[in-house]
Simulated scan of single mutants.
Amino acid sequence: MASIVVQAFVTLDGVTQGPGGPEEDVAGDFPYGGWQFDYDDDGTVGEWEKNTEALLLGRRTYEIFAASWGVWSEDEEGFQGELTRRYNRIPKYVASRTLSEVGWKNSYLLGPDVPAAVDRLRAEPGGEIRVWGSTELVRTLAEHDQVDEYRLLVHPLILGTGKKLFGDGFPYSRMSLVESRSTPAGVLVNVYRRAGD
């Protein structure tokens, strides 16, 4: 059985919007794009990504990823090349109410019944299905008790504005903390699993 793992860069006030660059997600005139780059994650994300066997993304995150990982050269040195190669090869499942096709290789639309499609994915043999960004999708997954694990890199930063991973009205969820440590840059690495798992 595959597991759904939500991975996120988060600020102390819960913001997860636009960590990767100034133009990554400017919805709501968000002024702090790229906030995550001032912090080193000490290789944590690289280690986690070695276990990624598929991506599960909302439309906006899919489009951001397709326009970056989907077009960058696989010949790049280091982490960028490694992740580009991995992301190009693994399946990418996209939850969207507006897209009728997806162009990044090995990408598939989930269709109108996202929870049922995710149940089918989870029932298949496999490892970790990674969710990045995709706050609306994460909420839908949580409403249907489909998130197996949250991996949060909590940054010592307060932005005061932006999309939050766990916004108002997020479904009640009991979690168990299974790992917690800090990086030299002061980023807290917290891993939570559903309570009882």
Rank of each mutant, 00 (worst) to 15 (best):
M1D: 10
S3T: 15
I4H: 04
V5A: 01
V5E: 03
Q7W: 00
F9D: 10
F9I: 05
V10P: 04
T11N: 04
T11K: 07
D13I: 11
G14I: 03
V15E: 04
T16S: 13
Q17I: 03
P19R: 02
D25W: 00
V26S: 08
V26H: 05
F30M: 06
F30H: 03
Y32H: 15
Y32Q: 03
G33S: 02
Q36S: 15
Q36W: 13
F37I: 06
D40E: 12
D41T: 12
E47A: 13
E47K: 13
W48Y: 15
W48P: 01
E49A: 15
E49T: 14
K50P: 00
N51V: 00
A54M: 02
L55H: 01
L56V: 05
R60W: 00
E63Q: 14
F65R: 02
A67R: 04
A67C: 00
S68Q: 08
W69E: 03
W72Y: 11
W72F: 13
W72C: 05
S73C: 05
E76F: 15
E77N: 09
Q80N: 14
Q80P: 12
G81K: 10
E82T: 14
E82S: 15
L83Y: 12
L83R: 13
R85S: 09
R86C: 04
R89S: 11
I90H: 00
P91N: 07
V94M: 05
V94D: 02
V94Q: 04
S96I: 00
R97I: 03
V102I: 06
G103H: 14
W104V: 00
N106F: 03
S107D: 01
L109P: 00
P112S: 15
D113K: 10
A117H: 02
V118C: 07
R120W: 06
R122A: 12
A123N: 09
E124Q: 15
P125A: 15
E128Q: 10
R130L: 12
V131Q: 06
G133M: 08
G133V: 11
E136H: 09
L137H: 04
T140V: 13
L141A: 00
A142F: 10
E143M: 14
H144S: 13
D145K: 11
D145S: 13
Q146A: 04
Q146I: 08
Q146W: 03
D148H: 08
D148R: 05
E149K: 08
R151C: 11
L153Q: 13
V154F: 04
H155A: 09
P156W: 08
I158H: 08
L159Y: 06
L159G: 02
G160L: 07
T161M: 09
T161I: 12
T161S: 09
K163P: 08
K163N: 10
K164I: 09
L165W: 10
F166A: 12
F166E: 06
F166C: 07
G169R: 07
F170V: 06
Y172K: 14
S176Q: 08
S180C: 14
S182F: 14
T183S: 08
T183V: 04
A185Y: 02
V189T: 07
V191L: 02
Y192K: 01
G196M: 01
